[in-house]
Structure formats: C-alpha cells, structure tokens
Design a protein around this nucleic acid. Structure first.
Length: 485
RNA sequence: GCGGAGUUAGUUUAGUCUGGUAUGACGUCAGCUUCCCAAGCUGAAGGCCGCGGGUUCAAAUCCCGCACUCCGCACCA
C-alpha cells in the first residue's frame, strides 16, 4: 500500500499524528506516536536489542539530549554541520553557495571555507540566480543544530543532532569501568534534533526524531581478523556500487573487495538479519556504497542501507567507518586520554558506526506490512507477531448468558503477560476486521460452548483460520507464537 | 526557502464559482437482535468549516496575512 494509505491507518488507529495539532502555531516536522505506534516502536527496539546489542555483547547507554558547545566544536558540527547558503535578493530562492558556484564555474570551494571566498567567487564570475537572474545577497551559514540557552545567563548549548557524541565522550569511562575489550560496541537509542529547512512526509523527515546508534570501537590493524565473521559469512546481502544492487553473501562481498574487510561485513550481515526479522521486504533493500561527494564529513567508507517504498528509496541506516576522527578530536579538545590497551598494544580505536533511523524504519515496516485483502474485503496489517501492537483480541461472541463475565476472566488472566485487547461490542466480523487492521495476529472468541467445556476458538489473522482449543492452551500457544525469534 | 494544489467531525467528503450559519458515507457510543467474518433495525454523541484580520446587515463561501499538509525544485551531516 502507499503513503496515503499508511497515513490514514496511522491517523485512524493511533500509530502517529501531528504534534500540537489543536494550536495554529504548531511547527512542521514534529509528530507524536500514539498507543499503537509506541507499542510497535518498543517491540522494534526490543528486536534491535536482541539482534544487535545482545548478540554482539554491546553496551547500551542513555545520554543527554542537550550537550555543551565544546562537544560540537570537537565533533566538527559547529563548522561542518552548517551549509554556506546564498539567497536571491529578487525571488528569495535559497541555494547552497558551494554547489551553485561549482555548477556554473566548475570552481570547487570547500563548504567550510571562509565566507568571503564564496562572495568573491560570486562577484568575480558575475553569478546570478539560476531562476530569475537576480543578484545574490552575501553568503551566510545555516547551521542545522538547535541552539538553546542554559540557566538565567542563557549559556550556549545545543540539542544533539545525532546521538553518538555521548558515546564518544563517554568512551574512556565506559571502557575502564565496564572492563572493555576491543572490538567493543556501544549503543544508544534516543532523540536527535535537526533544524531541517523543509521537513516533509511525516515520519520520514522530522526535526525531532529517534535514532538507534551503534558505535563499534576497534583496533584498525585487526579489521581482517575473523572475530564472529563465520556467523554471517553465508548471509545474503544486496550491495550496490554503481548500477543495480547485486545479491551476494557477506563472504563474497569481502572477497570481491566491495566491502573493505570482514569486520565491516560482519556488521552489515547482522544488520541485514535484523531487518529481515522486522518483516521489511528485503528483496527491496540495498546497501549502497557512497561516493566521496556523498559521504558525511567524518566518514572514510560509507554504506547506506536503503529500502524501496512507494515514495522511492528510503535511507534507513547509515553505516560509516569514521576512523579515529571522533576520538582524536575529543581527545585534542578535552585534553583527556582516549587511548586504550588492546592486549599489550596501546591504541586510539577506530569507529564503525551503524546509525539507524527509527521513525523511517517504522514507516517502512508499516508500508510493507499493510495489505488490501480484496477477496475478504479487509485491510490487514500483517506485522510479525512479535512486533504487533496487540498480540491478541479477546472477544465475547455475545454479551449475554454469562459470556461477558467468562471473557473478562480470560482477559484478566493474560493481560499482564500479553498485549491483549478486550472487546464485547459490535458484530463479531467487524471486531475481527478491526483487529486485522492494527495487526493483531490472534483473536480468541468465547461462545456458549466455552461455558460447557472450557474451549474457545482462536482465529489467525493472516489465514482467517479458526480452531477450537481449550482455555488452558491459550497461554502456551501465544507464548510460542508471539515470542521473539 | 521558491513554485503549485489543498485544509470542513476520529476518517473520508458535499457545499465555496453564485455569501443567508454545514451534507452524506464510514467509524464511535447506547439499545434491540444472540449472531463466527465490516449483517439488520432504533437512537445518540461528535464541527472555533486550519488560525488571525478585513469587506458585509450577514462569511465555510469574497479579500489580505500566517500556519500546516501534499506535489515539484532546492536542501537532507
């Protein structure tokens, strides 16, 4: 189904909706998760923890969202996260100064150059607005970070534009106190903030968004060591260098030199295995190797994990080999020591990053899972059972004759263990449809026979099959079916 | 940020040209029906008609500004 259908589902069934919508001064780029969205997000993150954090023995932290100026001076965001922009005095169109100059004159000026350099190039080459031939105003820097004031003196600080800086800053303490050993993954889930010029498409481009980031610290001279590579060597990944994505195993990707080493290939492999379990159609996925122009300012080698949707390819994860860029900058700026011992060798670790966009991933899961079942005239959200906001609907066939009470009793017995939803009202078919639409994999229905022999019918969402089971079996069937893989 | 199209109940939508206080569907709730796949019947709730200003006796409707949503461009470490 398409973006519009997902949006309708999100609004009608409480997955997500615009923030502060009752007020006229609400800003674009802010959305809230409703109950179904939160439940899906929590389960998605639980899967992420199982498939990446626990599997690899990583450490998880939870850092501050507001960080001091020094952090971003060291990280490079003060200088590099800002784009040089020029604005036409006639039509108000805004352009990137460096790109506009390059397009017209083929003169390359680095984006972090002095602003005068751009102004000079524009004057000397008589560059005019490509749209209306108007004159450009002086070059300005637009920084995407939200600046905020701390305390009564409004001291300068910033909302983090990525979660990972706390991981770098905390690395020396974590390595010491947690008895770290390279390679060591440190992870964090949380909000990041970017002042996008034009946020759009709900969860796909937000000003306040969730990231789940992993920074793997490693010894750069040991990237070809096997570690746990054998676990993923036969895992299929789809890799795109220039033309079409090609399916290959992780082992082949390293042998062909497409992925630089086993270390990186291992993480691409476990990431792929994770996404396969989210229910996203991975035949529509690719690891796209980025060229020099596209890479982030800190990245040496970069792969974007992208998935095709009805509105095009979406970047869900950025995988960057950041070398010692971050640790050495923080070491220099803070004058703290960031080197650690790897066996008997003292080194400054390098970093491989797996930076996941949670909101975009959730959108993609919804889009790939939402099906229109024309034969049965229903909309089905065929989520993996372990990701479904509701595991099971508990329904009374009719309210009378003590069926309501019996239903309540069954609900009471399972509601602490499962996400169960109790429903007595309306036609039974309609209640099944409603559960189908929010992705509940099971419905348990209590009828007159239940009172006689303690059996109920259990209905499966995808096949609509029903079978008669005893009440005592509900728990074991659910616990097996909705368990994480 | 530029250009275009929009914004009416939880969702979808008529009405806007031609000004007279909002229509239908779905959904929700209650009751009847006691029923296993969106059944039927009865009833009800639900609208600052995006926000602000102007014109007018009177504005969902005309005019201006703003916000938001979508599309295209630009942007997206």
């Amino acid at each position: 189904m398409d973006y519009k259908a997902v949006m309708k589902l999100a609004l009608e069934r409480g997955f997500y909706f615009p923030s502060c919508e009752v007020y006229g001064d609400a800003h674009a780029g802010f959305w809230e998760y409703g109950p179904s969205g939160v439940s899906l997000k929590n389960k998605f993150l639980e899967l992420w923890r199982r498939e990446l954090i626990r599997r690899d023995g990583m450490l998880e932290i939870d850092g501050s969202q507001i960080m001091s100026r020094s952090v971003f001076e060291a990280s490079g965001h003060m200088g590099n996260f800002a784009d040089p922009i020029i604005k036409c005095t006639k039509c108000n169109s805004t352009f990137r100064a460096d790109r506009t100059i390059f397009d017209i004159t083929k003169i390359e000026i680095p984006e972090n150059a002095d602003l005068n350099e751009f102004d000079n190039a524009i004057t000397q080459n008589n560059i005019k607005c490509p749209k209306c031939k108007g004159d450009f105003d002086k070059t300005k820097k637009f920084n995407m970070m939200f600046k905020i004031g701390i305390g009564p003196e409004d001291e300068e600080a910033y909302l983090r534009p990525e979660t990972c800086q706390s991981i770098f800053v905390d690395f020396p303490r974590l390595f010491k106190t947690m008895r770290g050993k390279l390679p060591l993954g440190i992870a964090q889930v949380g909000k990041s903030f970017r002042n996008e010029i034009a946020p759009r498409q709900s969860l796909l481009r937000l000003r306040e968004f969730y990231q789940a980031e992993i920074e793997v610290f490693c010894n750069p001279s040991k990237l070809s060591e096997t570690y746990r590579f054998s676990e993923v060597q036969d895992t299929q990944i789809r890799v795109q260098t220039d033309a079409e994505p090609i399916s290959m195993t992780c082992k082949e990707a390293v042998e062909l030199g497409i992925v630089p080493n086993r270390f990186v290939a291992y993480y691409l492999g476990i990431l792929m295995e994770f996404y396969e379990k989210t229910g996203i159609d991975i035949t529509k996925s690719r690891f796209r190797k980025l060229g020099d122009k596209e890479k982030a300012f800190y990245a040496e080698v970069a792969f974007d994990f992208e998935v095709e949707t009805t509105i095009g390819w979406l970047e869900l994860v950025a995988c960057n080999y950041r070398s010692d860029y971050d640790l050495s900058s923080h070491a220099k700026k803070s004058k703290e020591k960031f080197e650690v011992m790897d066996n008997d060798e003292k080194i400054l670790p390098h970093v491989f990053e797996i930076s996941m966009g949670i909101d975009r991933s959730l959108y993609t899961i919804l889009e790939h899972s939402l099906k229109n079942d024309k034969e049965h005239e229903r909309t089905v959200l065929s989520l993996k059972p372990y990701l479904s906001p509701i595991h099971v609907g508990i329904l009374s066939l009719v309210k009378k004759d003590g069926l309501k009470e019996k239903t309540d009793e069954i609900f009471l017995n399972i509601k602490r263990k499962y996400d169960a939803f109790l429903d007595h009202s309306g036609a039974i078919g309609r209640r099944y449809r409603r559960l189908d639409e929010i992705g509940a994999p099971f419905a348990v229905t209590i009828d007159h026979q239940t009172l006689e022999d303690n059996t109920v019918t259990i209905r499966k969402r995808d096949s609509m099959e029903q079978s008669r089971i005893s009440i005592s079996e509900i728990d074991s069937i659910l616990s097996e079916s909705v368990a994480f893989p």
